[in-house]
Lab assay of single mutants.
Amino acid sequence: TLFEALYDYEARTEDDLSFHKGEKFQILNSSEGDWWEARSLTTGETGYIPSIYLAPV
């Protein structure tokens, strides 16, 4: 399942991933609670993103 960003997000740590509204992600690991490891389909970068900023596509 792909997810789309509902809002912009600016990374706060080196493990976080910055993204823009409308960016799409492949989720790599969603077992860490509210922060999911994801790969951006726009940039190819991976990192942790807040799941509350996402909606399934």
Rank of each mutant, 00 (worst) to 15 (best):
F19G: 01
P56I: 08
F3K: 01
L17K: 03
Y53S: 10
N29R: 07
D8R: 04
Y48W: 15
T43F: 02
A55Y: 09
R12G: 08
E32Y: 12
Y9T: 01
S51R: 13
E45Y: 09
A11V: 02
E37Q: 13
D16L: 10
E4M: 12
L17I: 11
P50N: 15
E10I: 14
G33I: 11
Y48G: 04
S51Y: 09
L2E: 06
S18F: 03
T43E: 01
L41N: 04
H20N: 11
E37Y: 15
G47L: 05
T13E: 09
L2M: 10
S31M: 13
E32Q: 15
L28W: 04
A38L: 02
G33Y: 08
E37N: 08
L6D: 01
P56L: 08
T42S: 12
P56S: 07
L6I: 10
P56M: 09
W36G: 00
G22Q: 02
T46V: 14
F25W: 01
F3C: 05
I27M: 03
T13K: 14
E4W: 08
I49S: 01
K21V: 09
L6Q: 07
T1Q: 14
A11F: 03
Q26D: 08
V57S: 07
D8T: 06
S51V: 11
L17Q: 03
K24M: 14
S30A: 13
T42E: 15
Y48F: 13
Y9V: 03
E45N: 12
I49G: 01
T42M: 11
E32N: 15
Y9F: 09
D34K: 08
G44T: 04
L28D: 03
A55V: 14
Y53P: 02
Y53E: 02
L41I: 09
D16W: 10
H20C: 11
G33M: 12
Y53L: 14
A5F: 01
L41G: 02
Y9E: 01
F19K: 00
T13N: 14
A5K: 00
A5N: 00
G33C: 10
H20A: 11
D16Q: 15
T42I: 10
L28Y: 05
T46N: 05
P50Q: 13
V57W: 08
Y48L: 12
G44E: 04
E37T: 10
Y9H: 07
E37A: 08
T46H: 08
T1R: 10
P50S: 09
A38M: 07
S30L: 09
G33P: 15
L6Y: 03
T43M: 01
W35Q: 07
S51F: 08
D15K: 15
Y9R: 06
L54Y: 01
L2R: 05
Y7K: 08
L6F: 04
N29E: 07
G22H: 05
T1F: 12
W36Q: 02
L41W: 04
T42K: 13
T42W: 11
Q26C: 13
A11M: 04
D15F: 15
Y7C: 13
S18T: 10
S51G: 08
T1L: 14
Y53T: 06
K24Q: 14
Q26W: 14
S30H: 11
E45P: 00
D34W: 11
D15V: 14
Y7D: 09
H20G: 09
S40E: 02
S31H: 10
E14C: 13
E23T: 06
I52V: 11
E45R: 14
I27D: 00
S51D: 03
G22W: 05
K21C: 08
